[in-house]
């Protein structure tokens, strides 16, 4: 995984609440055996709406997406994170996320930044004209208007993101502990 330290640039002021993963990437696009190219299907139903923010020239190439509560709810499809990444999105800012989506985002180096409603409302305003900066190390979101919001992130996830660590590799290094657990498990719950 490529290390992530900061994301800066335009932000798409989407703002919608309960954006489910069927909205992010409809099921018909899941018939792929690759992680690439899903940007073509990203937000397909939203993009069918005239005047949608995704096709607004003002936000072309924006690396940040701003959304409402419960972003990424519904299906566990990691294709949602892959589709966002393929669109060039490197960070989402929203008041809350589904548990599965935030995990999937993290595993793909996509930041899922949680900020209170008031901060989201402010950033939605700023995004219409100006860029937004996210600093993972200092856990801040700032604008050129002196806005400065701090966000929480799990320390382990932060460590992995900053250093681009491969979680599978990290866990495989714990072979001794896993094998030890399996021995105990075999004795205590042999039917498993």
């Amino acid at each position: 995984m490529t290390p992530v330290r900061a994301v800066e640039g335009k932000a798409i002021p989407f703002g919608r609440a309960n954006v489910d993963t069927d909205i992010i990437i409809p099921a018909k696009w899941l018939k792929t055996i690759s992680r690439e190219g899903l940007g073509r299907g990203a937000f397909e139903t939203v993009r069918a709406e005239p005047g949608n923010v995704f096709d607004d020239p003002a936000y072309v190439g924006a690396p940040i997406l701003i959304a409402g509560e419960n972003f990424g709810c519904g299906s566990s499809r990691e294709h949602a994170a892959w589709a966002l990444a393929d669109l060039g999105i490197k960070a989402v800012i929203a008041p809350s996320y589904s548990d599965i989506f935030s995990g999937n985002a993290f595993k793909n180096g996509l930041l899922a930044i949680e900020l209170p409603r008031a901060a989201i409302d402010r950033l939605m305003e700023v995004a219409k004209t100006d860029p937004i900066s996210i600093d993972l190390e200092h856990q801040t979101v700032t604008t050129r208007f002196q806005d400065r919001f701090t966000f929480e992130i799990d320390p382990f996830r932060k460590h992995c993101l900053l250093n681009g660590l491969d979680e599978v590799g990290l866990t495989l290094a714990m072979e001794k502990q896993i094998a030890g657990f399996e021995q105990k498990r075999e004795l205590e719950t042999p039917w498993l």
Partner: peptide, 22 residues
Amino acid sequence: FGIGTSEVEHVLATQTLLLKQS
């Protein structure tokens, strides 16, 4: 519980997941 594809890979390779208690 449901997991994403990176976690599928993690379970296939290690039979474990890194989780925080809910």
